[in-house]
């Protein structure tokens, strides 16, 4: 036992270094994603004969490349927002069902059922969408078009199955489990003593939820919705099979309109020239930045919520 008592043991240094380095590798990867997308997008952007941010058409493979993110970004945002509007109320309902309505014994099993929705791969939703939902949506879409055409989004002369609405519906199904899972967690954390306070005042179950659960859970639901929005924007294969892949800006969600950045990358990659690939990478960069923004916003809401929880404690 000659070893000095307080020497750092051998092995701790390298191990500490290795784990710290792994954390840094993650940071490097995130930075590299940005850097390499920029580097490989620049030649294509320089060859572009139009404005990348405002141009609607997408002809990067032509000898005079003309392409822009306009229509694609529009389609990405609109389809994701519609998906969010459809999915959020249902997801909040599902979360409440599992946290406050379903019988206790069944609740976790039923929650697992909803989680299974998230386990189905994107491409399977795509296949399901093309083979089942697209033809299925024709009659409800015609119905909306016939009786609600006075609402501009349901207008238009021709109704198709491969529409913005169908794509948004598939997106809604795909983001529903994540929104439901996060909302469920925050609803379950709602303080029991405040729930009892509401009940003891003679509140019905819904009034108790409105007084003691929803105000507590609101920031969590907002975060969940933002994360779902980010997920919807980046979703690729399912919508690549459904979008009619046009390059126009139209709010008519029942007509043959619609595309998204991610879908365009999947559909356009096969026949892309080097400039075409660069153009797709440039569009991917835009997608990366938008999702980064949405996800950061979601995290900020969570961070604020922690402070709020501490203040309330």
């Amino acid at each position: 036992m000659r070893r000095p008592a307080f020497r750092r043991s051998r092995g701790d240094g390298p191990f500490r270094f290795l784990s710290t380095a792994s954390g840094i590798v993650l940071l490097v990867i995130m930075a590299a994603i940005g850097v390499f997308l920029v580097v490989k997008a620049i030649p294509a952007l320089q060859a572009n004969t139009s404005h990348f941010l405002t141009e609607l058409t997408w002809n990067p493979n032509a000898t005079q490349p003309v392409f822009g993110i306009g229509a694609l970004a529009f389609g990405t945002l609109i389809s994701s927002f519609i998906a969010l509007i459809i999915a959020t109320p249902v997801a909040v309902g599902v979360a409440l069902f599992i946290s406050h309505y379903a019988p206790r014994r069944l609740a976790s099993a039923l929650g697992y059922l909803v989680d299974l929705l998230a386990a189905v791969p994107s491409v399977v939703y795509g296949l399901w969408g093309v083979a089942f939902l697209v033809p299925f949506m024709l009659s409800p879409s015609s119905f909306l078009n016939k009786y609600f055409a006075w609402i501009p989004i349901f207008g238009g002369d021709q109704v198709v199955g491969k529409s913005m609405l169908t794509a948004s519906l598939v997106l809604a199904i795909m983001i529903l489990p994540i929104i439901a899972a996060i909302s469920r967690e925050v609803f379950l954390q709602a303080p029991r003593i405040q729930e009892e306070a509401a009940l003891a005042l003679g509140a019905t179950r819904w009034e108790m939820i409105r007084m003691a659960v929803l105000p507590f859970g609101r920031p969590g639901v907002i975060t969940a919705a933002l994360l779902g929005l980010g997920r919807a924007m980046g979703e690729t294969i399912a919508v690549a099979l459904i979008f009619p892949a046009t390059f126009t800006i139209s709010f008519r969600i029942l007509s043959a309109n619609g595309n998204s950045i991610a879908a365009n990358i999947a559909n356009g990659f096969g026949e892309a020239t080097p400039i075409g690939r660069g153009a797709l990478i440039a569009s991917g960069l835009v997608l990366f930045l938008i999702t980064l923004l949405v996800n950061t916003a979601a995290r900020l809401v969570i961070a604020r919520r922690k402070e709020y929880a501490r203040a309330a404690a």
Binding site: P191, I193, Q194, E196, A197, A198, L199, A200, L201, G202, A203, M211, A212, P215, F216, A312
Partner: peptide
């Protein structure tokens, strides 16, 4: 419960409500 009121072991005002709204909640 509307007829028979209750006060709990730990004070449990609704944290998102004002003093006024807490009293008026019922």
């Amino acid at each position: 419960r509307r007829t028979i009121g209750m006060v709990f072991q730990r004070p449990n005002p609704f944290p998102t409500m004002s003093i006024f709204d807490n009293v008026a909640a019922g």
